[in-house]
Design a protein around this nucleic acid. Sequence first.
RNA 1: GCCGAUGUAGCUCAAUUGGUAGAGCAACGCAUUCGUAAUGCGUAGGUUACCGGUUCAAUUCUGGUCAUCGGCUCCA
Length: 631
Amino acid sequence: EIAALIGPGLAKVALAGKIDGKLVDIRTVVEKDSAIHIITDKSPEANEVIRHSAAHIMAEAIQKLWPEVKITIGPVIENGFFYDLDSPRNFVPEDLAKIELEMKKIADSDQEIKREMWSVDKAIQTFTKMGERFKVEIIQDLVKKDGIKEVSIFHQGNWFDLCRGPHVPRTSFLKAFKLMSIAGAYWRGDEKNPMLQRIYGTAFASKKDLDQYLLQLEESKKRDHRKLGKELNLFMFHPWAPASPFFLPHGAILYNELLKYIREEYQVHGYEEVITPQVFDVELFKCSGHYDNYRDNMYFTTPADEKADASDLKGSSLKAMNCPGHALIFGNTKHSYRDLPKRLADFGRLHRYERAGVVHGLARVRTFSQDDAHIFCTVEQIQGEIENFMTMLNGIYKTFGFNDYKVYFSTRPEKRIGDDSVWDKAEGALSAALDKLKLPFTVNAGDGAFYGPKLDIMVTDAIGRAWQLGTLQCDFNMANRFNLEYTAEDNKGHKPVVLHRAILGSLERFLAVLIEHCAGVFPLWLSPVQAVIINISENQMGLAKELHESMMAAGLRTELDIRNEKLGFKIREAQLKKVPYMVILGDKELSSRTLSIRLKSGKEIKDVAINDFVKALSEEVKTRAPKGSYE
RNA sequence: GCCGAUGUAGCUCAAUUGGUAGAGCAACGCAUUCGUAAUGCGUAGGUUACCGGUUCAAUUCUGGUCAUCGGCUCCA
C-alpha cells in the first residue's frame, strides 16, 4: 500500500520491504512512524527474498513429485539456498532437472504467496497429521526457547510451510533459478543426528545475474589449485600418503621463495628462527594440554614392546603444533623483563590426522608447515605486538596483491582451560589493541581457541572469495602449564603471555589460495620459470646459450628452448606454462645483438639491450614487484 | 567419520543391451631449420584403482577395500 502511494509502478515490482533497516515481508503492517524502504528486484536485498521463496517452491515441487518426502528447513545462504529433506529415496543428479521443471510450472502458475498466523496448537496438530515431524520439532523448540504463541505460515496454492519470511508476493516473481547439487547434511548440523538429503540451488532477480553467477563458477573452476597444480607440475598426491602433498621441482620453488620472503620479514620485525624436533615424548603434549584436547587429530607411535592403551598412551607423538616445543626453549633459560618480547619463529613440519572427508587439495592436508611464531611478552606488551604483527601482515598481504582483508575477534568458547578472570584479561587486551589501532573488526562470540581469544584475518581474493589466512591467538595458559617465568623489576618471577601468530597460516594452504588468487600467473619473483629463451633456427644457438648463461648468472630462473621445433610451437608451450618472459632470438637479433621480448599478454617489445633486460628482471625480482617491468 | 558420486594410457576423454579396449595431446624415432599460441609421417604405451563373487564370458552386473570429488560434521 505504501508503495502504491508512491506510484502504481513501484507497487507492481515491490518484492519486500525494510522497516527501520529490518527486512520484512511486504504484507507486514507498519504500526508506527518508521523509515521505510521498498525492496524491488533492483535492490541488493532482493536476492535474499527471491531465494527464500525459491526454496519454498523447490520444496513444493519435490513433494509434488515425491509425496513421501518430508521437509525440514530451507534457508538462504550466501550464494543461494537449500532445503534439507528427509526422504526414503536417494536423490540422483537427474532429479534436479525434473524438480526444476516442476518449479517452473509453479512459478508460471503465478500463485499468490499468502502469509497467515497460526496458533502453536493448530500448527503442531496440522504438521503432526502430515507426518512432518521435523516441523513439529522446530515449533516445539520455538515455544521452549522464545515462548511464542503463534507462528507464521506461508501459502502458495495448496502448499504451505512454517516460515518467518519474507517472501515475494507471487510465484511469478521467480524468473531465474537453478538447482546446483545434492549433498548429505545432518539434522541440525549435529553428526549424532540422522543424515538428511540437502538440495542446493540458487536464484537471482534476473536471468542475466544468474548467468553471470554461473560464469563466475566456471571461472573458479578454471582457477582450482588442484587443476592448476597438475597442469603446471607444482605438486602431486599418492594414495600411499593420502592428503600429503609432494612438491615437484616447480612447486618447491614457490614454497622456498615464500620461506625466503618470510625469513626476510622476520629479520625486519625482530623474530628469531628456531628448529625443533619432529617427534616428542607424549609427556610434552600431556603437559601442554593438547593430549587431552586434540588427541584425535594426532599421530602416535608406541614402542614395539609396549601395548597401546588408548586412554593413556606412552611413547611418542609426531608434533601437530610448534608451541609446546617453543615453551621448552623458553623454559630452558632464565629471562629478564628486558629480553621481552621474545619472538620465536619455526617452519617446523607438522602432522595432523585430518579425517578422510575433510581433506582438500593443498588447502587441508595432513602434513604441512606454518609461518608460525610464538611471542613471549608481558600483558602490557600485547598491544604493541599486535601493532607490529598487523604492520608485518599488511606489508606481506600487499606483496601478494591481497589488498582487502577483515579482522575477526573470537572470544571464549565453551570447551576451554583457564579461569574466567584470565579470559577477561586476555579478551580485554585484544579488543583494546584493536581499538587503539582503529582497526574495524567483527566479534565471533565463542569461537576462540581453548587456550585463549584470537584474531583471525580473512582476505578477499581476485574473484571476491574470502579466505582465512592470518591469525593471532592470545594464550594465558601456556606459561602455567610449562611453568614459564621472567624476572621483572621487582626481582620476582612473572608469567609471560604467549601470542601464537601466523600470517600466511599453513604454507600449503596459502599456496592453494595464492594459486587461485592469481590463476597460476605468479609474479616474477615466484614464477618457477622466469624466462624462456627461444631460438628460431640453429643459427642463433650460440647467442641463445650465451644469454642463458648470463641470465642464470644473474640469478634468473631461465630455460633454454633450443629444440628443433617451430617458433609458434615453442611460444605456445611457454604460454601454457605461464612463463612471464619469452626471449625470441632470430637472425635479426643475432646481427644487432638485441632482444625481442614477448610477454605473457602477447605484447612484443623489440630492440631491447641485453643488459637492460637482465637488469630490469633482476630489479623486478628483487623488489617482488606485483607487476611486470614492461607492462 | 557421515551422505552421495567417481576411478579406463603420463594428461583430457570414448567404448551400443556383458562378447577380453580406442582417440587427441604428451613420450620415442625419422624427415623438416622454420619470425610470435600446435610441421608432417611413424612407433610404442593398458592385469580398465585393488581384492573377491555371479557368468561360457565382466571395463560393463555385484560385495568389499583404497583413493579422489561434491556436501555435512570437524579444524589449536
